[in-house]
């Protein structure tokens, strides 16, 4: 199969994630969209690694996964704690520091 198709898929996934980040308000959904974008870039990295025949892309993809895992832990904790105090997961409601 032509590896370029994987790149198309990665671009598609990234676009879906980005539109989700821009459109949705729910923090959880936003979060999932961010994950989608990260994974799309992972896919692109791995594809390029395959295309060029070296392992750099795959190593970076591992790094990204580790960072994403850490980020999910911290981010979800924050979202849960906000939801507990404010009874809302909407990002527009957290506006205490807005002028």
């Amino acid at each position: 199969m032509n590896p370029v198709n994987y790149l198309y898929l990665a671009a598609l996934l990234f676009t879906i994630g980005a539109s989700g980040v821009l459109i949705r308000r729910n923090a959880i959904v936003l979060f999932m969209c961010v994950e989608l974008m990260l994974n799309a870039s992972n896919l692109a990295l791995v594809t390029f690694s395959r295309l060029h025949g070296n392992l750099d892309g795959q190593i970076i993809a591992f790094f990204t996964m580790v960072v994403a895992a850490a980020e999910v832990v911290v981010g979800l904790a924050i979202i849960v704690s906000i939801f507990r105090t404010r009874h809302s997961a909407s990002v527009d409601d957290s506006n205490l520091m807005k002028l």
Binding site: L22, V91, D92
Partner: peptide, 9 residues
């Protein structure tokens, strides 16, 4: 405007 998504945009 204080909305995260507009900054992201």
């Amino acid at each position: 405007n204080g909305y995260v998504r507009s900054y992201a945009l």
